[in-house]
C-alpha cells in the first residue's frame, strides 16, 4: 500500500508545471525514502531529476517499492482540479494499475477523489556521476528566468561564462548581440536576492535557450536557483522545493564544431 499526504497540494501543482513541457510521461518511483523521478526529454538533451523526501510529507507510507508510470498531461488535468490550499493524498495499492488522488478543502467541506490509470513505462535509469563543479552560482530564480527570456530573443544559444568577477550571459543572432553580467552581491539583507559564486576555475559553456526556458518553469518553486558548471559536462539547474526536496535539470552543452 502506498499513501502520501501533503497539506500543500500547491507544491505538486508547481512540480507538474515544472516538468510537463519537457516530459510527456514519467515514472514516479516510490520507496520508504520518498518519491523520485528521473527522465530525459525525448531528444535526450536534457534530464529532469525530482526528489521528494518522505519526511517532507505530513503522512507517508510505502510498504513496498512502487513504480508508477504516469502520463503527465493527465496528472496535470487532475492537479488543476485541486485548490491551492487543498490537502492532497496520493494512494495506490501494491502492484496497482491505477493511483487515486484525494483533495480535501481546508474546511473539510469539499472532498474530491480522482482515479487515474497508470502506464507501463520502460525504466531507463541513467547513472549521473558525482561531480565537483568548477563553478557554482546561486542567484534569484526570477532573475535567472528573466535573463533566459530576454536573451532567447537574440539567439538560440546562451553562453554562460563564470569568472571570479562574476557571471556573464551572452547571446548573438540576426538582430545583434546581448550581454548580461551579474556581479557577486556584497552584503544583502535578504539572502533570496543574493548572487553568490563559488569558483574553482573559470568556465564558459554554450547552451540552448529553449531548454533553459523550460527549466525556468520551476521558478515558482523556489526564490533562488543554483547553476553548477564544469568544462564540457552538462549544466545543472537546481531549485529547492521547500523543506521536502528539490528538482534538478541537467542540460548537455553545445560544442563548437
Amino acid at each position: 500500500m502506498f499513501e502520501a499526504r501533503l497539506v500543500q497540494s500547491s507544491i505538486f501543482k508547481k512540480v507538474l508545471e515544472a516538468i510537463k513541457e519537457l516530459l510527456n510521461e514519467a515514472t514516479f518511483d516510490c520507496s520508504d525514502s520518498g518519491i523520485q523521478l528521473q527522465a530525459m526529454d525525448s531528444s535526450h538533451v536534457s534530464l529532469v531529476s525530482l526528489n521528494l523526501r518522505s519526511d517532507g510529507f505530513d503522512q507517508y507510507r510505502c510498504d513496498r517499492n512502487l513504480s508508477m508510470g504516469i502520463n503527465l498531461a493527465s496528472m496535470t488535468k487532475i492537479m488543476k482540479c485541486a485548490g491551492n490550499d487543498d490537502i492532497m493524498t496520493m494512494k495506490a495499492q501494491d502492484n496497482a494499475d491505477s493511483v487515486t488522488f484525494m483533495f480535501e478543502s481546508p474546511n473539510q467541506e469539499k472532498m474530491s477523489d480522482y482515479e487515474m490509470k497508470l502506464m507501463n513505462l520502460d525504466q531507463e535509469h541513467l547513472g549521473i556521476p558525482e561531480t565537483d563543479y568548477s563553478c557554482v552560482i546561486k542567484l534569484p530564480s526570477a532573475e535567472f528566468a528573466r535573463i533566459c527570456r530576454d536573451l532567447s530573443q537574440f539567439g538560440e544559444s546562451v553562453v554562460i561564462s563564470c569568472t571570479k568577477e562574476g557571471v556573464k550571459f551572452s547571446a548573438a543572432g540576426d538582430i545583434g548581440s546581448a550581454n548580461i553580467k551579474l556581479a557577486q552581491t556584497a552584503n544583502v539583507d535578504k539572502e533570496d536576492e543574493a548572487v553568490s559564486i563559488e569558483m574553482q576555475e573559470k568556465v564558459s559553456l554554450t547552451f540552448a535557450c529553449r531548454y533553459l526556458n523550460y527549466f525556468t518553469k520551476a521558478t515558482p518553486l523556489s526564490p533562488q536557483v543554483c547553476l553548477s558548471m564544469s568544462a564540457e559536462v552538462p549544466l545543472v539547474v537546481e531549485y529547492k522545493i521547500g523543506e521536502i526536496g528539490h528538482i534538478r535539470y541537467y542540460l548537455a552543452p553545445k560544442i563548437e564544431e
Binding site: M40, V45, L126, T206, A252, K254
Partner: peptide, 14 residues
C-alpha cells in the same frame, strides 16, 4: 556553428 550534444555521451545507462 555549434553542435548540440546528447546526455547519453555523458551519463551511462545503468
Amino acid at each position: 556553428s555549434s553542435k548540440q550534444m546528447k546526455l547519453d555521451s555523458f551519463f551511462n545507462k545503468k
